[in-house]
Design a protein around this nucleic acid. Structure first.
Lengths: 222, 222, 222, 222
DNA sequence: GATGAATGAGGCTTCATTCAT
DNA sequence: GATGAATGAAGCCTCATTCAT
């Protein structure tokens, strides 16, 4: 009766109509992400969220047990969008190198589209109690896994050096996140496209083998 | 009494004794950094800070005008420590490459020493009103400038490729910060030393010219 | 729609089917007595009652105008059960003394059977607005009247002393109620049977005349 | 940090000044007893209590951790007053029978003086969580012990029959409480003095031995 | 007749800030 | 200069009640 949810689906609503729950939650989360991103979690009141979502404050508590639950849902929705964009971007690609670059590009693109939300994730994950925070971390690890897999494939194909995959993955992920985190400065230095281009070049230098470079020129030529 | 400070020294204390102000503020800030780092800014009360600092709640308001002022001071103290460690680490070094690596190492070391505080800076800068936040950003840009300078020197000396200095600087800075931000995961993968070693290797690959590699081997051999 | 009922039958339902009203109310009251007894009136929500009664929250408001109405109905149902048990226990008895003891025993038995509900009556009568409370008091006075009548008969028959009937009635009633009110302690001291036996002995000592004792021995001997 | 108090003195105030705590608490409790008695615990808001006590709502929480804590303190203050009046009434009396009657009279007197509060105790003890309720029960048992001791002395002196002391004590206590609980009806039947007189007579009949009656006449004659 | 989602007023509680000592 | 008790505004959350289906 009091234990915290260990997966998203354990965030139990008091409302039974499955479809309604989805619709309402989505309303609430959309409003929450917007507000939390701009004003921060603590400066945003549930009334704010309710008003922006076009519902009453009481209603929110039929779909969520806590203000913290709203945060959890909001953060998960952000991470979830990462997890969906990457596979979508890889669809139809089979060349390891192409897949790798596509993954990074896709990641940077989502981050750019959800810039404020990305910052939110950095700011607010620690505001969650430990158990709920684990959910977020699990989600992050899963997304990283997608990048890591692309990287591993390149290494296996001899296109990239034998690096510590997980550490480099963090470099890649961090590169994407930085576009959001340091946007206040970066936007004065370059566009997203330039940022991505410079980044990919940097990573190419750091990672590609001679074989990799040859392959790179080939796919670049097409 | 109502206009916000635009530099640190505008955070006006009601107390006149200069030395006392410094001592008291340092007490307060030490306590605040500790508490904000662990519990976050909003979960920490002024009473908490007062208790940990061993003073009364009322006293704090003689040295600070706001709770936000405490945050500002706390964040500045963190960024200040970065700004001091780096030049200290470069002391006596004249070789551009040595200086570059030393700067990165120093940065990573401070971040490691003040890990929680680094996370705090990421979480809480946005909690400041815009004017105060500018102070923080200015401080960050200044620190970045030190790294950037080392990088520029290497490039000028032909040891590194002609890269977009400021962008790469962000990569470097972010690499250091990540040790704190993703410590929950990284600590399971490697030690700080390994992290730094892997990172430096990565950056070497990405940045060094043939000339740079030759030089690198030379200073490595000494 | 806003004036309060002055008798049970003024608690107006919106539903017309008489039999249905009775059935629904009984469902609701059973659930309410159970919940109010255990958690108290204020800690019990209408949703709780609805769930336990197996109906929807909205339905309750078709048979009752208020949450307080539910309480009124619940309390009346408890007092009603007293009013029914006593005459039932006297059925077929004509000897005044036998009737007296039987009445007390019956009262104690109902109280024991509806222990929590008895406590509820003590706790919650004051939660009703004055007009509704009068209904409860009238009901209590009526029940007391049954005991008082038995007592009066014994006195008239010369079996008991000429006491202040109503005051002694309160002693008797209170004795029965105490079994519920102080059950947390009494249950450690004796069983219901022992409690009743000791009590009857006590009252015998206090009330019986010499004539009464003689009669008592006679009926005890049978 | 979260465990409930197990004695009154564990209800910890945030204020350190011992004397102030006593004064403030007394202000709060006086207001609370008054309001809880008339409107009930749940119908009384902390704001109500604060206003009546002439303090701010926030202040209450410096002396109490909960609204329930206020109730606990209020109830304890009532029971405490019982515990003080009885010994005071026995002061200087040595004759067992005199002491017994004096104890009952004193009990009835306090109940009369704090009639509403006595009703409060009956209504609201169950509103406390179990651990806190234990405190109340312990206090009640202690008070009962004083009556029981007087009773025991009379029995030992051969002035009263060998009865089940604790059960009879409950009869006596209940008799006193009834004056408050059933005051709405009793006040129409008699004054407090008459109530006590009738009651004492009743108990005399029930309890005194022949020896007891002799002694009774003697002390009554003085 | 029945449902149950939605409402929104209202209560408890926290905590930044003040001010008398 | 320092204290810490006091204030009161504000936010989270509950729940009686309504109403569209």
């Amino acid at each position: 009766m009091d234990h915290k949810p260990s997966t998203v689906h354990d965030v139990k609503a008091q409302v039974t109509d499955e479809a309604l729950v989805l619709r309402r939650r989505s309303q609430i989360i959309t409003a929450a992400v917007e507000l939390f991103s701009h004003q921060g979690f603590y400066r945003t009141t549930i009334q704010d969220v309710a008003k922006k979502a076009g519902v009453s404050a009481g209603l929110i508590y039929q779909y969520v047990s806590d203000k913290e639950d709203v945060l959890l849902l909001a953060l998960l929705s952000v991470l979830e969008s990462y997890k969906q964009e990457i596979p979508a971007a890889l669809e139809g690609l089979s060349d390891p190198l192409e897949r790798f670059w596509a993954a990074i590009r896709a990641y940077c693109r989502v981050v750019d589209q959800r810039r404020e939300a990305t910052v939110l994730a950095y700011r607010s994950t620690k505001s969650l109690p430990d158990e709920r925070r684990q959910l977020i971390k699990a989600c992050e690890i899963e997304t990283n896994g997608m990048i890591a897999a692309c990287l591993t494939d390149c290494v296996k194909a001899g296109l990239m050096r034998e690096v510590n995959v997980e550490l480099v993955t963090y470099q890649l992920v961090t590169f994407a996140h930085s576009w959001a985190l340091k946007h206040w400065r970066l936007k004065e230095l370059c566009t997203l496209e330039q940022y991505v281009a410079e980044g990919l070049d940097f990573f190419a230098q750091a990672l590609l083998t001679a074989e990799g470079w040859k392959h790179q020129r080939k796919i670049g030529a097409e």
